[in-house]
Design a protein around this nucleic acid. Structure first.
Length: 275
DNA sequence: ACGAGCGCCTGTCGGC
DNA sequence: TGCCGACAGGCGCTCG
């Protein structure tokens, strides 16, 4: 469940709990259990299991698509990639098929990091800032201004969709919300970033914020059998809508490939640059 | 600097 | 029914 709104939804659920699922705040860790060693970027499973007992959950944060569980001494950084999920449950529940790492709490609860495809990663570090230093600005950060965004766009001569997906340029966007934001802003995904006007940049940033906020409000998007997200899929205007009528103008939504990713857009609302 | 192609994995779906 | 390819909310790596 991997873009910013889905990760933010998980963050909020870990922080506040939800019906039948407790918050993990202030829980003390009894032990860590690595079920598939490849899940750990660092440290080694041995060091991980020796360092983590006794630490307490101080707060739960997010940076881009990274989930940050701040402990007394260290921070657990989780990245769900394509198919990750996090569950909090009683420790006597049977394991799911693709649980990769467990955190057992002293009160008997358990946090499970689950990942069908083995892409997701967990890292335990005392220096979270250094691990996350490569990330671009947070799109929902009030201090991130249209002027800042414009500077980033002008620095590159890249197709805008590639730039938006690049976490070094702006953090948290993935394939769905990028397509939705570009559609809302009326910008073709192949438009060169440095050809956008300041006015278009403002529109794009406000569109990005609008779709991310709406995504969070609806607790994310559920598309697949494997994503147990929220309801935002009901509001998608172009993503996954190839052959359907654009809700804005009725034109047939097209799908093209950028990189290896499907990209959906409305040829009428988002005219090809240079035409 | 840019973008395409590929690898990493498991699973579903549609076509034959 | 089974097989086979296309596809999937990500990202790091090469290469031209």
């Amino acid at each position: 469940m991997p873009e910013l709104p889905e990760v933010e939804t998980i963050r909020q659920q870990l922080e506040h709990g939800r019906p039948g699922r407790p918050s993990i705040l202030d829980k003390q860790i009894h032990s860590g259990e690595v079920l598939w060693s490849g899940v750990l970027t660092a440290p080694s499973p041995r060091e991980f299991t020796s360092r983590i007992p006794g630490q307490r959950v101080h707060s739960v944060g997010r940076r881009g698509k990274h989930l940050l569980i701040h402990l007394s001494e260290d921070t657990l950084i989780m990245h769900l990639r394509m198919s990750g999920d996090v569950f909090v449950e009683q420790g006597d529940q049977p394991l799911r098929k693709h649980d990769r790492l467990l955190i057992h709490f002293t009160d008997g609860a358990r946090l499970a990091f689950n990942n069908v495809r083995k892409f997701g990663r967990v890292q335990l570090t005392s220096q979270p800032g250094a691990v996350l230093a490569h990330l671009g600005p947070e799109p929902l950060d009030e201090d991130f201004s249209p002027r800042d965004f414009f500077d980033i766009l002008q620095k590159h001569n890249r197709q805008i969709k590639y730039l938006l997906l690049d976490q070094k340029s702006i953090a948290g966007l993935g394939n769905i919300y990028t397509d939705e934001a570009l559609h809302l802003a009326g910008i073709h995904p192949r438009t060169k970033s440095d050809s956008l006007s300041f006015k278009q940049t403002e529109a794009l940033l406000s569109s990005i914020r609008k779709v991310l906020r709406a995504g969070i409000k609806n607790q994310g998007t559920s598309i697949d059998w494997m994503y147990r997200g929220g309801d935002y899929q009901q509001y998608l205007l172009v993503y996954g809508q190839e052959g359907q009528n654009c809700p804005q103008c009725g034109t047939i939504v097209k799908r093209i490939k950028l990189g290896q990713r499907s990209t959906y857009f409305c040829p009428s609302c988002q005219p090809q640059p240079g035409r």
